[in-house]
Simulated assay, not measured.
Amino acid sequence: MSSRWIRPGTAAILCVFCFLRLPQLFSTCVAFSLVADMGIWRGAIGSWSMSFWCVCFAMTLIISTVELYRRRSYFPFFWHNISVTFACYAALICLSASIIYSITHVQFLPHGPYRDRAIAATAFSCIASVLYVIEVTVIWAMYDLEETFFYVHTTRALLKVLETFVAVVMFALLCNFTLYLQEPALEWCVAVYSICFILAAVVLLLGLAEWEYMPPRPFSIFQLVLSLLSVLLYVSALVLWPLYQFSEELGGQPQRPSDGDCRDELTYDMCFWDQCLAVAVLTAINLLVYVADLGYWARQVSVGTENVSSAPNSVQSHPVTSQSEDIL
């Protein structure tokens, strides 16, 4: 077992479980239970939010069970990397579900018990996101005290978390196939989102498995090429998606309609025009994240070149030190 692995005692694990994991389980369980009991008033957004809360509940339960029964060594990946990565995703998921559900659905519900249920579910979702943020902060503090390197405590890992999370939100919005089918340019945009998501997810998983301890220079060049490819693909999507969705000359709809599901009142489905706009905004946000990722790896390659020219054996002789300099 690696000497860099923190081995919290049973008391510490029980403390984390009682003060963080149990409230997380309770909050996510109450959130999706309240929405699940709303019947036809749940709506598509409610079902989408409920599925996210269910995922957070299930993953928190699995991680808690593994830690309580001391089965972490059964997993091929670095366990604490997995747990803190999930906590980062869960915090973003619960926060996004709270915002989207309240803006697109809760405010249109009529006053009564169903609206109260939806407001309570949103509140518990916000509480869950705060608890997951606290967990991430506590784990990072533990590693800082131990002066231990772990992948998710680096800039490149946080960028990958953001890239994959934004892509997942876009995929949830793109479940409505009528937004892009029968139009090759829009299908290309969806392919771009999928390709970039897969690349980012693979790199993130390799990082969690500590694959980044390969020779630094080839790894940095490999990451630079992937980031450049992702930026170019996202630039094409940022141009084509708004052009074909909002340009009247190309069959798009420049203004938000006021009929169907786009009425300013409670509807079962989310307005298709709002979905198109949300995907366009998220495309721009993810492009900025990929540009930041590209800049990071361009700097790493530049610094690595200087290090190799001045001290060719320094990186190979101190791989852990080189990686630890990347800790935030």
Rank of each mutant, 00 (worst) to 15 (best):
A141C: 09
P110S: 04
C196S: 11
L159F: 11
E135Y: 06
A172F: 13
C88M: 09
F108T: 06
Y151C: 06
V308Y: 14
P257N: 12
D274V: 09
V279L: 04
P218W: 07
L61Q: 08
Q316W: 14
A311S: 14
F77A: 13
M214K: 11
L250S: 03
W48G: 09
T283G: 14
C196I: 12
L34A: 07
L20H: 02
L174I: 10
P8Y: 04
T283Q: 02
G46R: 02
T104M: 03
A292I: 02
L159I: 10
L226F: 11
V133W: 03
E212N: 12
S3N: 09
S102Q: 05
A292D: 01
I63W: 04
L68Y: 07
I198E: 08
S220K: 05
G260L: 08
L158V: 12
H318W: 11
F197V: 08
L20A: 05
S324H: 14
S64Y: 04
A91W: 03
V239K: 01
L266A: 09
S49Y: 15
P319Q: 05
R299H: 05
R7L: 14
F222G: 11
S2D: 15
P254V: 14
M142P: 01
R72N: 06
L205P: 03
L204Q: 10
S220Q: 14
T137K: 03
V235F: 03
Y180C: 02
